[in-house]
Design a protein around this nucleic acid. Structure first.
Lengths: 243, 243
DNA sequence: ACAAAAGTGTTACCGCTACACCCATGA
DNA sequence: TCATGGGTGTAGCGGTAACACTTTTGT
């Protein structure tokens, strides 16, 4: 695709679709999962809530890079967990023209994710995933896909840690598992508080720090941390979580 | 993006990348996994082997639809298992211009996958995944990603069936699991022939047909079939394979 | 002292691994 | 009848789900 200075248009002998990235940023507040949404300032779907994202640019080194850039424009983020979710390319998903989007999902520490003061008067807000507003485009589908992916992945990869501070307590981690997997009331297997730490410690990459979390009512829980090196070793052997 | 009849060019005020799909078509021959490759007739990478695929067109209803169309142009296929693998969008992956590709992986019955007589003198050939030739673009990476995805997925989804006829024998299915997971010699857990049928039957969606496979040397093995309905029910309960 | 939450210990059961033996088939 | 591959049975072990009790902390 070449830029024509005279017409001020990009020209190509072949048809090219527009490409965007959209990110499902998930944060945990101790009780439930939340998604970060942006209120749209422009048509189409003006004033509706939508996922943060935008058009890919030639200078983006990759789609991942593009999604990361978009997030950095809206919040003070650095080194967050982000993975590709999939491509959404139905021909009618954007009323303007053919736009295919590459969706990503990110896990962040909600309390540390500071949304920048709206540069262009854009409003950003966290919504509990169980109480989503009406959403622009096919963004509801994208969020549902992200949640489904998260549910699947947490069985086999230790990604819950990305929703917590570096040092966390077992009850906190347990709450994340319950919030993501949403077990029925009669399920003791996952819900039983007493078995949870045993499972986690057995994996070999959740380590005690020796410290305790202070300032709570009631007994101070121990603080644990995630050992990346130990995880990489365990992964090679083919270790897997089970819930 | 709009078509200008005068200049015969597609024009847009915004930059759009070129978008292709590429498919990793995997077939099983009873012993090992094979990938279908096409010898390129055009530059770049002329005469090198590459994945089947091509540019997305405005009439493609989705990326999946595009990938499917490309396969239908090259082989007599219908109703095959195909799923998105991911997006490959590094800016230097195509020497011509910025091209991002949406990769898919497909599982087919190799003996039933008839590659059409080369319309445009394109040569198509199966290669064992362990003996790949030099490949165009980043297609080697894409294939490796597909194999890794397959290894992961077969633990939790019954996709091995797509590599076999509707009616198959336990030893055949067992061979697929061994070929995909490539267990070390000392691993009896997966390798033990005697435990394999028990695991499969216990899942509840592999059913006996009552028939036997004839025409072999030695004892005729029983024929089984995959029960899609039973699988869908089991999936809801959250059943999982374990190897 | 009490209430609420966190930490630790124990048992019984279930399921899987690891094993051996028998059967069918074509040469 | 023999060689080879396929089908079936079982016992012992390990892991984990389901259980109870103790400890900590702030009010």
């Amino acid at each position: 695709m070449k830029y024509n200075k005279k017409t001020k248009l990009w020209e190509s002998p072949y048809w090219h679709p527009a490409v965007t990235t959209d990110s499902v940023v998930l944060g945990f507040d101790g009780k439930e999962l939340n998604v970060l949404l942006i209120r749209r300032g422009l048509e189409p779907y003006k004033n509706m809530w939508a996922l943060p994202g935008g058009f890919m640019r030639p200078e983006d080194k990759s789609a991942h890079d593009c999604a990361y850039r978009e997030l950095r424009e809206e919040a003070d983020v650095d080194d967050i967990y982000m993975d590709e979710l999939g491509v959404f390319s139905n021909h009618d998903r954007d009323p303007r023209e053919r736009v295919i989007t590459i969706a990503f999902f990110a896990l962040v520490v909600k309390s540390k994710y500071h949304v920048r003061g709206g540069d262009d008067a854009q409003e950003a807000k966290w919504f509990p995933v169980k109480e989503l507003p009406a959403l622009a485009f096919d963004h509801k589908t994208i969020i549902e896909t992200a949640l489904e992916r998260l549910r699947q992945r947490i069985h086999f990869e230790p990604i819950g840690f990305h929703l917590l501070d570096k040092e966390f307590t077992m009850p906190q981690l347990h709450n994340i598992y319950k919030a993501i997997l949403d077990p029925p009331d009669d399920d003791t297997k996952l819900s039983d508080r007493r078995n949870f730490p045993k499972k986690m410690l057995k994996l070999g990459y959740v380590k005690e720090t020796g410290k305790k979390m202070t300032g709570n009512r009631y007994r101070s829980p121990k603080l644990y941390t995630f050992d990346e090196d130990a995880y990489q070793k365990a992964k090679k052997i083919g270790m897997r979580l089970e819930f």
